[in-house]
């Protein structure tokens, strides 16, 4: 079997496709930030005790999470403007940030929740004993403990979102994948173009994954250490 690979094509396509990297990475961070903020909204909504609302929020999250982000993007891009009264036409980039941001906010919300759940019950009781207000309890006691352990998990979601961002090319966001499609169509050569995209993803996401893995181990150690320190302090008292 002869292999049909053209290096000149590869080097010709590379700079062309690389021009899209700014959009791809920028969009990743924009979606991520959106999801980070919106994740909090889910956490707050889920804390509403009123049964029907709680049920509605839970199932809305489940709905967003278990339906394809691709169709969600199409919905925001094509369908939203057609809804009378509330519909507005948004740019592809905005649609991508909204669509992917909302989709992943449901996952991020769960990450926050697991962080909050992992804070020891005694911390709440101690806050009551010290007569902290609800606001103070959250800002000074609970969140500072709940958020740091979730950082590696959030990092993982950043990488996952980076790999989902090329979906936005389907609604016209010109990142590396869209540029590769253009190049492939113009030169009737998809092979090198798509390989370049794959390589760029690999080169960026693999080291990040290793970095986050390291961070995770470091965090684990730090928090274990804290736990041990607290224990030993407790023993002295």
């Amino acid at each position: 079997m002869n292999i049909n690979w053209k290096w000149d094509m590869f080097f010709d396509a590379f700079p062309f496709i690389l021009k899209g990297i700014g959009v791809t990475i920028g969009l990743t961070f924009a979606c991520f930030l959106f999801a980070l903020v919106f994740g909090f909204v889910w956490v707050i909504l889920r804390r509403i005790k009123f049964k029907p609302i709680n049920w509605l929020v839970t199932w809305t999250m489940e709905f967003i999470r278990s339906t394809p982000p691709l169709i969600q993007l199409f919905f925001i891009y094509y369908a939203w403007p057609m809804i009378p009264g509330i519909g507005v036409t948004l740019s592809s980039i905005t649609c991508a940030i909204l669509g992917l941001g909302i989709h992943f906010s449901t996952y991020i919300g769960e990450v926050y929740r697991s962080g909050i759940d992992s804070v020891d019950k005694g911390q709440w009781e101690a806050s009551v004993a010290l007569n902290y207000s609800t606001r103070q309890t959250w800002l000074k006691i609970i969140l500072p403990q709940a958020i740091p352990p979730t950082i590696p998990m959030l990092g993982n979601y950043l990488i996952i979102m980076f790999k989902e961002v090329p979906l936005a090319s389907t609604i016209g966001v010109v990142g590396i994948l869209a540029l590769a499609e253009t190049y492939g169509a113009e030169h009737y050569r998809n092979l090198e173009a798509y390989t370049i995209v794959a390589l760029i993803f690999l080169v960026l996401s693999y080291p990040s994954a290793i970095l986050i893995n390291k961070l995770e181990r470091k965090m684990n150690r730090r928090f274990d250490k804290n736990a041990v320190m607290q224990e030993s302090k407790g023993a002295v008292i």
Binding site: K163, E164, V165, F201, A209
Partner: peptide, 8 residues
């Protein structure tokens, strides 16, 4: 795992 499904 390092590349994206749509690219694959």
């Amino acid at each position: 795992r390092g590349t994206s499904l749509i690219v694959q």
